[in-house]
Structures are given as structure tokens and as C-alpha cells.
Amino acid sequence: MDVKELLMIAIGSSLVSNVVLSQFLGLCPFLGVSRKTETAVGMGAAVIFVITLASAVTGTIYEYVLKPFDITFLQTIVFILVIAALVQFVEMFLKKFMVGLYQSLGVYLPLITTNCAVLGVALNNVKYEYNVLTGIVNGFATAVGFAIAIVILAGIREKIEYNDIPRSFQGMPIVLITAGLMAIAFFGFAGLL
């Protein structure tokens, strides 16, 4: 496994097959927490943090627990269990040792438990037969892709606030249209690799 291949995976999962805009995972926080750039950055940071950790843990569990016992078909259930526990643990850990980070991540940390992007990355790692290290890189890159997408959308939404939007498009419709246009724009990365 050389650096070049890791780099390819990183670019591939952060831009080309962006988790939100091309895989359509994690749409709930993408639409829900993108009202202000500030909160979007917080959410993005929390997602990067959790997905990277979760990729490491689920990768290890898959490799050393599920595979030896030949019960890989239970991956979804075990991953959900592990991710939920992990988020709980991270929250406790941060509360004790990094109060500043805990307060800045705030409510987003527990919210991520229910973010399907986290589970999606863990399952993708298995699907593409990544080992633990590659899985971590893929997880980190995917989360960075999520952060990029949510911050861009938040920036656009802040500008949209001042626009004169037809009544039928006010609120969520215009956000969904914006997200759709962003997805088309991200489609342009398809030729990158």
C-alpha cells in the first residue's frame, strides 16, 4: 500500500464520490445544520472526528471479530452498536479532558450517532475491502468531503437569506434545489481520477 494509492482514495472519496452529493448519505445534518457557516463548521469538525475514529474501530472489529467467527453478515448490526457506543464514549472523554472542544462540538456530537454517513463509511470500507489503515484514510477523506459540502451549502444559504425567493420555493425547497445544483457541480470532479 503506497502513498499514491492512499491519496487516490482520499481524493476519490472526498470529492469525486462525495458522501453527501453523490452517495446521498448524511442528508439530515446536511440540510438541518447548514443554516449558519459557524454551526456547519462545528458539525463538519465533529463528523470528521467521529467518522475517522469509527472507521478505525469498525475496521478493527470487522477484521478481528467478525471475520474469524465468519459472521460478516452481522456487520450492520454490530457497526451500529459500536458506533453508538463510540460516540457515547467520545462524549464522556471530551467532557472530562477537553472541555473546550466538548463545548464547541456541543450538541452535534450526540447528533452524529444517528448520522447514516458514519455507518455508510464503515460499510463502504467493508464493501471495497479496505484494510484498517486504508479504511481510516477513506473515513477521514469522506468526512472531509462532508465538511466541504456542508460548509459550502451553509455559505450559499446565508446569501440566499437576502434574496427575493418566490413564495413556493421559500424555506426547504430552495435549499434542496441548491443542494441538487451543488451535486451537479460536484459531478464535474468525475474526470479527476
Partner: peptide
């Protein structure tokens, strides 16, 4: 297969439960 699956998931669950319980005390 069923027994292994049950046993492994139960073990993982038990481990997580104990781990989180201890962590809650440790990081109180």
C-alpha cells in the same frame, strides 16, 4: 452459525456495556 452470531454479538454488547459503565465512572 446462529449460536456463534448470538454469542459474538452478545459478547460485543456486554463488552461495550461494561466498557461504557467503567468509562462513566472513570470520566465522571
Amino acid at each position: 452459525g446462529i449460536i456463534t452470531a448470538t454469542a459474538v454479538v452478545a459478547a460485543v454488547g456486554l463488552f461495550i456495556g461494561i466498557f461504557l459503565g467503567l468509562a462513566a465512572i472513570q470520566f465522571r
